[in-house]
Design a protein around this nucleic acid. Structure first.
Length: 597
DNA sequence: GCCGTTTTCGGCCCGACTGTTTTCAGTCG
């Protein structure tokens, strides 16, 4: 009956409302527009569904939502529409909001084009391309030949919307190519990767670079001459932007050494961190920008310059804030109180707790491509002390429970043999491997391995690989039921998301985290770059409740074990320290934790 | 329209770049 509003849909509606106000009277509505946009951003970043919060009467607790928005959202959720919202949108054709997704087209431009050319909401981009090709746009007031050409280019050559994102791991590869190109210019004294790449966000919107140079013009010329450039979006004195194949945007900013710290800070973002930091600073009489800090209380408002970021934050009375935490989720207040934690680092990791060897376990899922000894060799290269082999469980189909037990017994014997070899002193840092298993959680919460089978294991991981669409309460029961088994220690890739491909399952995470804390279960942070699961925002929620985590790469071959860095990034974004992660413990400490009653 | 270690009123981050303009509006991050 009633529409199930997702956070993204509500946020989009609020952004459309902001755009409508922008079209109607930007001056009069200036701060209302900001308020709507703020609310949209807050809702996008919520870790629970806004509709659920409304159910629980907690709308007013969401930052950016005041009396007025709460009232209108209440009406929207109750009846499917809000009178007030509808009246704001009334005079704006739907095609306007579609065209706003085109690069370089904002609310004003979209509205002008739609009104002038009577563009309807069936294929508005096609209609826009047509009038551009016919040379009709150039005659409109405020447009010309250049802007007409730009619009045509955006709408035809670059079909992907502004909001497109790519995987972090993919973006790293792309950024390394352009870094290599930029370093060929001897005017580049230093170059950094900033923005969401430096903050290690799981998906990247564009690649941001900054350069120290005294010859801005030459460096920016070299940049736009990058051989893979498919389009130059802009090029000025301080910055430039290009597009490269794959429709990835690359932005660069250049500055001399003496103010480079401010540029690093500004261009690392996030936007929301910067806004919050600037608001905080204004209250103390300072105005921040990428060029430095203005003391508003001094007569001359002299610009103070900072060559490095540490000094920039220190000047503001703040502890240095690691880039991964700069999301305006409490880091500024923490820095003020000197409470920024020492975040986990890759070197702290002593084990990989999810990997799949080529041991033939007769599973219906994918098996690994490398032998257990190959994985151990890789573990030695990484300096680990122990590993856990976590192949998928043998398939139920085509096996009796007894046959499954037999297969698991065979695997146990193999692991035992390896451990006795390791005990005899095989060269390398790995001292022990654990006999584990990644077991499907069946839709009803039961496990496809008998208790007798489970007893062959040191411990088990459980995870969801089917029926992703159960209701929230059924899903929660399903997970808790699986975790309840005494042999089960870890909930692996908990939300089941595949970034940019599959949404997270819906579950009552608060309940699951509380259960984990109470019953000594661990929550995995899967380091596969397309999983990164738990997601960072849920890690923070879990951390507050005292959850302990494991890090596992889910490697299906030896080089997959190199993905640990991605998991570390995610853990850092979740504010985790060494204490929070189980596989930072030494082998003996880890064994104690395993056998804890 | 939101919000409060100046506040229930009076603020709300700060700047670059482009195109179409003669001083600025629109878009973007």
């Amino acid at each position: 009956m009633n529409k199930q509003w997702s956070n993204l849909e509500v946020a989009e509606l609020l952004r459309d409302l902001a755009a409508a106000l922008q079209i109607k009277d930007p001056k009069k509505n200036k701060f209302r527009i900001i308020a709507y946009e703020n609310a949209a951003t807050e809702i996008e970043h919520l870790s629970s569904e806004i509709k659920d919060l409304w159910d629980e009467n907690k709308l007013a607790e969401v930052p950016g939502i005041g009396d007025s928005l709460a009232k209108n959202l209440d009406e929207l959720f109750k009846t499917g529409k809000s009178e007030h919202f509808e009246s704001l949108l009334r005079d704006i054709p739907k095609a306007v909001f579609d065209l706003m997704k085109v690069q370089g087209v904002g609310p004003k431009t979209a509205f002008k084009l739609v009104s002038q050319f009577n563009i309807s909401d069936t294929n508005p981009k096609g209609q826009l391309a047509k009038v551009a090709r016919e040379g009709k746009i150039r005659d409109l007031e405020g447009f010309g030949e250049k802007s007409e050409a730009e619009i045509l280019k955006s709408v035809t050559e670059f079909k992907v919307d502004k909001a497109k994102r790519i995987l972090y791991s993919y973006a790293v590869g792309k950024s390394e190519e352009i870094l290599a190109w930029m370093r060929q210019d001897k005017n580049v004294k230093r170059i950094d990767t900033l923005g969401s790449l430096r903050r290690k966000v799981s998906t990247i919107g564009d690649i941001d670079l900054s350069v120290i140079t005294d010859r801005s013009k030459e460096v920016l010329n070299h940049f736009v001459n990058y051989p893979h450039t498919s389009r130059i979006l802009e090029k000025g004195e301080h910055k430039a932007s290009i597009m490269v194949p794959g429709e990835i945007q690359i932005d660069i900013r250049v500055q001399p050494q003496d103010s480079y710290g401010s540029l690093l800070q500004h261009f690392t973002g996030s936007k929301y961190h910067n806004i919050a930091l600037r608001e905080y600073s204004l209250k103390n009489g300072f105005s921040l920008s990428e060029f430095g800090i203005k003391d508003l209380n001094s007569k001359t408002e002299k610009l103070l310059k900072f060559s490095d970021e540490e000094k920039f934050y220190k000047f503001l009375g703040l502890q240095f804030i690691p880039p991964e935490l700069r999301e305006d989720t409490g880091e500024i207040e923490a820095a003020r109180q000197n409470k920024i934690p020492k975040l986990i680092e890759l070197a702290d990791i002593k084990a990989d707790l999810q990997m799949h060897s080529s041991f033939d376990i007769e599973t219906s899922h994918d098996i690994g491509g490398c032998s257990m000894w190959d994985l151990i060799e890789k573990g030695n290269d990484l300096g680990y002390e122990y590993l856990a082999f976590t192949e998928h469980n043998p398939s139920q189909k085509g096996h009796t429970q007894q046959q499954i037990v037999n297969i698991l017994q065979k695997k146990k014997d193999t692991v035992d043999q390896i451990n006795s070899s390791l005990a005899k002193g095989v060269k390398g840092s790995i001292k022990k491997v654990f006999n584990s298993l990644e077991i499907d959680i069946l839709p009803n919460g039961s496990l496809p391995v008998s208790q007798e089978g489970l007893e062959t294991l040191d411990f088990a991981l459980v995870s969801i690989h089917s029926s992703f669409n159960l209701s929230k309460s059924d899903m929660t029961k399903r997970i808790l039921s699986a975790l309840d088994n005494p042999k089960v220690k870890v909930l692996a890739h908990p939300t089941g998301r595949l970034i940019l491909k599959r949404e997270s399952i819906e579950a009552d995470w608060g309940k699951i985290f509380e259960f984990a804390v109470k019953n000594d279960k661990w929550i995995e942070i899967n380091a596969d770059s397309s999983r990164l699961d738990l997601p960072d925002y849920l890690i923070k929620d879990a951390l507050k409740l005292g959850v302990k985590f494991t890090l596992g790469t889910d490697a299906h071959n030896a080089w997959g074990m190199d993905n640990m860095q991605f998991g570390i990034n995610n853990a850092r974004r979740g504010w985790l320290t060494v204490d929070d992660i189980v596989n930072t413990r030494s082998l003996s400490q880890f064994e104690k934790l395993l056998t804890k009653p």
